[in-house]
Simulated assay, not measured.
Amino acid sequence: MAADIADLPYRPCVGALVINRDGLVFIGHRADGPEEPEGPGTWWQMPQGGIDEGEDPATAVFRELYEETSIRSVSLIAESRDWIRYDLPPNLIGKAWKGRYRGQAQKWFALRFTGEDSEIDILHPGGGHHKPEFNAWRWARPDELTALVVPFKRAVYAQIVREFEGIIGRS
């Protein structure tokens, strides 16, 4: 099976590190039910999602952010230097994403939130997203992020925070 896993591609994905005026980062609590491959949502994460066929990553991050949070009032600050990859734990390979991927290759974007908190609507997100990704949200300190996320994504979050640390606190 290890050879089969090694042959699986990474799912192309974008992630949004949304920073408010106070230098805090948007983080949502997963709304996954028990039927989801990763189990019920018990962790927090930043908005992220797949890139559509032929879609530019910068376009995808604005679309995904809107589809998960209804946020439109953001400006692009920075893009990660590289694609950041992570592998799913072995027990999730073959379950998540219909077994087509071994993990994700993510391009991350730092975005400045310029709106008001009232713009954020995770329960009725924009773009016709049929099922909410999150059931709660909050602004978090950057040093909290890795402890809040599911363990197999912690190294990714630590890398993102390190890469964007010089801009997170700037308003």
Rank of each mutant, 00 (worst) to 15 (best):
W139T: 00
Q104G: 01
S73H: 12
R170C: 12
G115P: 01
G127Q: 05
G23W: 01
I5S: 12
P142H: 08
F109C: 02
R102S: 08
Y10I: 03
G128R: 07
R138S: 06
A147W: 11
L65K: 05
L8N: 15
G28P: 07
I84W: 01
R11L: 13
I122H: 06
P125M: 10
I51T: 02
A58G: 14
G128M: 11
P47V: 11
A147V: 00
P12E: 07
A110P: 09
A155E: 08
R154G: 06
T59Y: 02
N135F: 05
F113H: 00
P9I: 10
L111K: 02
E36A: 02
Y101D: 11
D4T: 14
E144N: 11
H124V: 08
W97F: 06
I27A: 14
I122G: 06
P89K: 07
P89L: 03
E144I: 05
E68Y: 06
A105L: 13
D32C: 10
D56V: 01
D22N: 15
R170V: 15
G54A: 13
Y66K: 14
A60V: 04
Q45W: 01
I71A: 08
L148I: 11
A2E: 15
E144Y: 04
R102W: 08
L111P: 02
S73A: 03
K98C: 03
S73L: 11
Q104F: 07
M1W: 15
G28Y: 07
W137E: 00
L123E: 08
I84M: 13
D56N: 15
K95T: 09
G103R: 10
M1H: 12
H29V: 00
P37Q: 09
P142Q: 09
E53G: 07
N91T: 10
P37E: 09
V25A: 11
L17S: 03
G99N: 11
P151N: 05
L88R: 02
D22W: 02
E53A: 14
V74E: 08
E68I: 02
V18E: 11
G28V: 04
W83P: 10
R63S: 08
T146N: 11
A16F: 10
N135S: 04
D121K: 10
